[in-house]
Design a protein around this nucleic acid. Structure first.
Lengths: 332, 332
DNA sequence: TCTTTATGTGAAACCGGTTCCATAAAGGGA
DNA sequence: TCCCTTTATGGAACCGGTTTCACATAAAGA
């Protein structure tokens, strides 16, 4: 059942070393012996055991992708981009997810121990609420690591994230300049969300640059769920905003449903804009104007960055901060 | 940088064997030595190299999940269910995807070689258009394998799939018995789709059981894309059907959009039903009546089945066919 | 007191490859 | 002809753990 290199060697009347060389094309092997070995390999369907290769080469050709979930509209795209690049370089993707129920400490313990056990050659980590201390601990492991989704300050680590600020800024610019709205409400995400904070910053700066005074009472704290969008709708209506800019599509959907329930005409009486461009945002009624996030590119860049680190012997390579642009999607 | 068991042993003044036993709790180790070893392990942050463990135990604690993609509404759910179960048993998930561009032969070559290289202890394969020959080849590798998404005939292999037939049957039953429709059009998927074929079968049997004659001219060949839904709409209208049952939600959406463009009242002049219950099907206007597919459960069952095979020393265990029920979602 | 039996430990083999090194024959240049 | 490469090959060490086995000692049973 399990044929090893040793047996191939015996059958071919050569040593293991020669079989290894023949298979890898390393070192010298005479033509005839090579043919004979390759013939036997084919006949017996021999495939080297990757566990042995991994050990002796001390690398696994595997990179971990660590993220909060695999469902929902984003992560699938990230995974796809990631896997796409890794597969091209003959690397494998080890997936690790953590659900938000799990205590943060446990989550980090899990992925740190994964990395320390050297089961993977590197890791891309998408841990939206990670703290600086953890990041430091992780990079001190001396492994190729890239953090996704957040700009981590004060720590030397490769990061890849989305330009939330400019995405938000340009959406506001659109609402103000193209549609002429002045009174625009903003629904934030949860307090600890870096993404949300950046989007709020874009909102503020755009107002300022357009000479509209920032009114804190038009900023509503949501939590990225549809439900919170619904809840905030009433308050927006009470404040008589002309447009609502929701910091994600999910809440925008909540707003739309609630408005429709109340008989308010979305897009006429009040305008809605979202952020994310999740895949259903073009299917809802009316289609949602939103900011597209290049999740697929994020996955690809993460993979490229990691491979770059793995293949670079230059240990002291300067960490990079890769910012990917968003794109305004105008629909309604 | 890299501390090994040997060095821990030397520092503790014991042999590797003792360290190994202390760490794994196997065999006898005296209390004091154990404490001393554990102390050193903690101090030096020692974590055994999983590559070495893998080799000597000849298992990897890793299971492959092989599927066509990671994006879209389905696969994320499958992955989530799969990973969820594996993580609980301290197994890892190795993800492998293939895009539809790639020639089928290459795809299979890739995953067969993955399995043969013994990089994983088992694999769940979601390969919708796999042929019987390939499946035979795969199971002859003697590895724990489960095929997802399709009932494979004549081959002894664990399979997990959705009850497309009954899902379709009960939708038809609903349309006929509850709404009293007699003239129902059916839009199929592509010719090679097993799912689509089963749904068509459900359509036919339900007609038969309800004493309505099957009319082949009311079956329209689509290809699961929204576009093909649009295209078929005209023909449905020409044939003056009372209801259209689309074999997936995507095409149903195409139909709805096309009907609305033509000014036909969806739900009044003509009824539409879909299949899949994708995320957005409840958000479109009007909300779509459809058949829910338990993708999350599929992932979970696949993982459980694989783990079961891995942990069972009973080699000749009878293959299982696990059929997961669909659920009718009535919305409009 | 004399076996058994339970406990504790290290040397060495093993998992299945890669790689270093010594050795040797063949070919090429002076 | 002599010396130096280049080509070929096998033995042995190594990667970093696990596991078997032999042996030693202490506790328990007869």
């Amino acid at each position: 059942m399990k044929i090893t290199m040793k047996e191939i060697a015996k059958m071919a009347g050569v040593s293991k070393s020669t079989v290894s060389r023949a298979l890898n094309g390393s070192g010298y092997v005479s033509g005839e012996k090579k043919d004979e070995i390759l013939k036997l390999v084919k006949i017996h369907n021999y495939v080297p055991d990757s566990k042995a290769i991994n050990l002796s080469k001390s690398r696994t050709m595997t990179v971990a992708l660590i993220l909060p979930s695999t469902s929902g509209p984003f992560y699938g795209e990230v995974i796809r981009g990631f896997e796409e690049i890794l597969a091209m370089e003959r690397y494998f993707t080890l997936l690790m997810t953590f659900d938000s129920q799990e205590p943060p400490q446990k989550i980090r313990e899990r992925y740190i121990s994964l990395i320390r056990s050297k089961r993977v050659d590197g890791a891309a980590i998408f841990d939206p609420e990670v703290d600086g201390e953890t990041v430091k601990e992780v990079i001190n492991l001396g492994f190729p690591i890239v953090y996704i989704g957040e700009s981590i300050n004060g720590v030397s680590v490769d990061t890849i994230f989305i330009d939330n600020f400019n995405g938000s800024y340009s959406m506001m610019d659109h609402l103000i300049k193209v549609h002429g709205y002045n009174r625009i409400g903003f629904i934030t995400g949860p307090a600890n969300s870096f993404d949300s904070a950046e989007r709020l910053r874009g909102y503020k700066y755009s107002l300022e640059d357009n000479h509209i005074e920032f009114n804190p009472s038009l900023v509503y704290r949501g939590d990225f769920t549809k439900e919170s969008g619904k809840i905030m709708t009433d308050r927006c209506l009470a404040d008589r905003v002309e447009a609502i800019f929701s910091s994600n599509d999910e809440m925008a959907l909540g707003v739309i449903e609630e408005l429709q329930r109340k008989g308010v005409k979305v897009g006429k009486d009040i305008a809605i804009a979202g952020f994310d461009d999740v895949f259903w945002s073009k299917y809802i009624h009316p289609p949602l104007t939103t900011v597209h996030q290049p999740m697929h590119s994020i996955g690809k860049m993460a993979a490229k960055t990691i491979l770059d680190r793995i293949n670079s012997n230059d240990v002291v390579k300067t960490p990079m901060r890769i910012v990917l642009s968003t794109r305004l999607i105008v629909r309604n």
